[in-house]
């Protein structure tokens, strides 16, 4: 079970979205981290055959996926970032439709749809029209369709975006359950999600893989460290300009800053344990603030 991408490149007119990427995915969960425009979605869309690469190849167990055509799509599950729905279908209709569409024989479709409803906790909402579903329920329906064909490759693009904390935890557990004996590639902005789900993490920047490895490996290889500093309130702005500040806690007469730096930034700074968020900030710098909607920095 091996998904290999070789020299994978995608150009859109004058922009290179993905640039000569090489990687081999084996069974397990892979987290793809990167800022907006890093090329994550483009990479995923090439892996799902939605986009043709400009150059390079994608192979599954040595076979070119373009040549495999629908045989490759049979082992594929995909939950896109903008997961669309058929508004007038009920959840059950939707799964009963997706089952034959994904090549499941009609005699098995119903049982498989039932199983997916149970797995995602949607059994009691089966008769609800999809337009009436909440964001979390839509995502659950999305993951149900993605795994209804028991895929060998599961691609999840921002699966937890827009979910409340309890839905996110539920979703994370669900993905962890699904992770056995398949390649799961998920992209997210939420560092804690990747940390809790992914065995391997890929940091993507400007269309390239800049760092790969387990969470521990990335932390170990991060050149920066996290320092906790007590700073007078009036110096906070200067510190923000001078250092990469991952958090600011304002007190009565001073502020506690967490600064990323290779060296001790100021006397009295206390070295703290490096986290994956520090790695992310260290790798992407100021641009990571572009999408700090989930407290990445």
């Amino acid at each position: 079970m091996e998904l290999t991408i070789t020299e994978l490149t995608k150009d859109f007119r004058k922009t290179r979205a993905v640039s000569q990427v090489n990687y081999t995915f084996q069974s397990g969960v892979y987290g793809l981290l990167g800022v907006n425009g890093a090329g994550k979605t483009t990479l995923m869309r090439m892996i799902t055959t939605l986009l043709k690469p400009t150059a390079g190849t994608i192979t599954w167990d040595g076979q070119d996926v373009v040549q495999m055509d629908k045989d490759y799509r049979r082992i594929l599950g995909y939950l896109p970032q903008d997961f669309g729905i058929y508004p007038d279908f009920t959840v059950q209709d939707y799964l009963l439709y997706m089952a034959p569409l994904k090549g499941i024989r009609p005699v098995l479709a119903k049982a498989r749809a039932e199983e997916m409803l149970r797995m995602t906790g949607m059994t009691q909402h089966r008769k609800l029209k999809m337009k009436a579903l909440s964001g979390g329920m839509k995502r659950r329906a999305g993951i149900a369709q993605a795994v209804i064909n028991d895929p060998k490759i599961l691609i999840l693009d921002e699966p937890t975006a827009g979910l409340d904390p309890s839905e996110r935890i539920r979703f994370r557990n669900l993905i962890s359950e699904l992770a056995t004996d398949r390649v799961v590639l998920l992209s997210t902005h939420i560092v804690s999600d990747v940390e809790s789900m992914a065995g391997q993490i890929i940091l993507m920047k400007n269309g390239k893989f800049v760092m790969t490895g387990s969470s521990e490996e990335l932390i170990r290889n991060c050149p920066d460290r996290g320092w906790l500093c007590d700073v007078p309130k009036k110096q906070v702005n200067d510190c923000c300009l001078k250092y990469r500040v991952s958090s600011i806690k304002t007190m009565a007469d001073h502020a506690k800053l967490r600064i990323l730096s290779r060296e001790m930034p100021m006397p009295g700074a206390v070295l703290e344990e490096t986290t994956l968020e520090d790695v992310f900030l260290s790798c992407f710098g100021e641009r990571s603030g572009d999408e700090s909607d989930h407290g990445v920095v």
């Binding site: 629908k70 799509r73 049979r74 939950l79 993605a146």
Partner: peptide, 18 residues
Amino acid sequence: SWKTDAVYYNTYYGRTKS
């Protein structure tokens, strides 16, 4: 317009039978 295209096209029959 329903944004179902991404899922539809990478299904087994999305580009053929369907």
